[in-house]
């Protein structure tokens, strides 16, 4: 698995990634997925990541990029 931009989140990211890949290949790709089974693990990972992104100022960069890209096709789906 790839590492996280925040080393302190690598462990929770790893756990989430493993869960996702298992769910994706064993349930989603077989058309059997009704819910996202890895939601809980994602929330833990997301909490860690959000803190790190704030500390590094990446959240601001992301928000600005999204704002600047409003005239472009930022959202997937609109671009086709």
């Amino acid at each position: 698995m790839s590492s996280s931009l925040a080393p302190e989140c690598s462990e929770v990211k790893e756990r989430y990634d493993q869960c996702f890949i298992k769910w994706y290949s064993e349930k989603y790709l077989r058309g059997e997925a009704k819910t996202d089974d890895c939601k809980k693990l994602f929330d833990i990972y997301k909490e860690c990541l959000s803190k790190a992104m704030k500390a590094k100022g990446i959240d601001t960069m992301l928000a600005e990029a999204r704002k600047n890209s409003k005239d472009l096709d930022m959202d997937i789906g609109q671009s086709r």
Partner: peptide, 19 residues
């Protein structure tokens, strides 16, 4: 590529689409 992080992931239960 040093790192990749998932910012959001959503399964739409009606369409089956995963974003």
């Amino acid at each position: 590529v040093l790192a990749s992080d998932t910012l959001s992931r959503h399964l739409d239960p009606t369409t089956g689409k995963l974003t």
